[in-house]
Deep mutational scan, measured.
Amino acid sequence: SPEVQIAILTEQINNLNEHLRVHKKDHHSRRGLLKMVGKRRRLLAYLRNKDVARYREIVEKLG
Rank of each mutant, 00 (worst) to 15 (best):
S1V: 06
S1L: 07
S1T: 09
P2S: 05
P2C: 15
E3M: 05
E3Y: 04
E3A: 06
E3N: 03
E3S: 04
V4N: 09
V4F: 09
V4S: 10
Q5S: 05
Q5R: 09
Q5H: 06
Q5Y: 09
I6R: 01
I6N: 00
I8D: 06
I8N: 07
I8A: 09
L9V: 03
L9H: 00
L9M: 05
T10D: 02
T10F: 03
T10S: 05
T10K: 01
E11D: 07
E11F: 06
E11P: 01
E11A: 08
Q12A: 11
Q12K: 13
Q12Y: 10
I13H: 00
I13N: 01
I13E: 00
I13L: 02
N14Q: 09
N14S: 05
N15R: 12
N15F: 13
N15D: 09
L16N: 01
L16D: 01
L16S: 01
L16A: 05
L16G: 01
N17H: 13
N17I: 15
N17A: 14
E18G: 05
E18A: 11
H19E: 03
H19F: 10
H19R: 06
H19Q: 05
L20M: 07
R21L: 06
R21T: 06
R21E: 05
R21I: 07
R21D: 04
V22I: 13
V22C: 14
H23D: 05
H23F: 04
K24H: 11
K24F: 07
K24R: 11
K25F: 09
D26E: 05
D26K: 10
D26W: 03
D26N: 05
D26P: 05
D26T: 05
H27V: 11
H27F: 12
H28N: 11
H28G: 10
S29Q: 05
S29M: 08
S29D: 05
S29V: 11
S29L: 13
R30A: 08
R30E: 06
R30N: 07
R31D: 08
R31A: 11
R31S: 09
G32R: 15
G32W: 13
L33G: 01
L33I: 06
L33S: 01
L34G: 05
L34P: 02
L34R: 11
K35I: 14
K35Q: 10
K35F: 07
K35M: 09
K35R: 09
K35E: 15
M36A: 11
M36V: 05
M36L: 15
V37K: 09
V37N: 03
V37F: 08
G38A: 14
K39C: 08
K39H: 07
K39Q: 14
R40N: 01
R40Q: 08
R41D: 10
R41Q: 08
R41G: 06
R41N: 12
R42D: 06
R42A: 10
L43D: 00
L43V: 02
L44G: 00
L44R: 00
L44A: 01
L44C: 09
L44V: 02
A45M: 10
A45C: 14
A45Q: 11
A45I: 10
Y46Q: 13
Y46M: 11
Y46P: 00
Y46N: 09
Y46V: 12
L47K: 00
L47V: 04
R48Y: 13
R48M: 07
R48F: 13
R48L: 07
N49G: 10
N49I: 14
N49E: 14
N49F: 11
N49A: 13
K50D: 05
K50Q: 14
K50N: 12
K50T: 15
D51Y: 03
D51R: 01
D51F: 03
D51A: 03
D51Q: 02
D51S: 05
D51N: 08
D51L: 04
D51H: 04
V52Y: 15
A53Y: 06
A53Q: 12
R54A: 11
R54W: 04
Y55D: 01
Y55Q: 02
Y55H: 04
R56L: 15
E57C: 07
E57Y: 04
I58P: 00
I58Q: 02
I58R: 00
V59N: 01
V59T: 05
V59Y: 03
V59W: 05
V59S: 02
E60K: 12
E60S: 10
E60M: 09
E60D: 07
K61Y: 08
K61G: 07
K61H: 10
L62R: 02
L62S: 02
L62I: 12
G63E: 07
G63M: 15
G63A: 14
G63N: 13
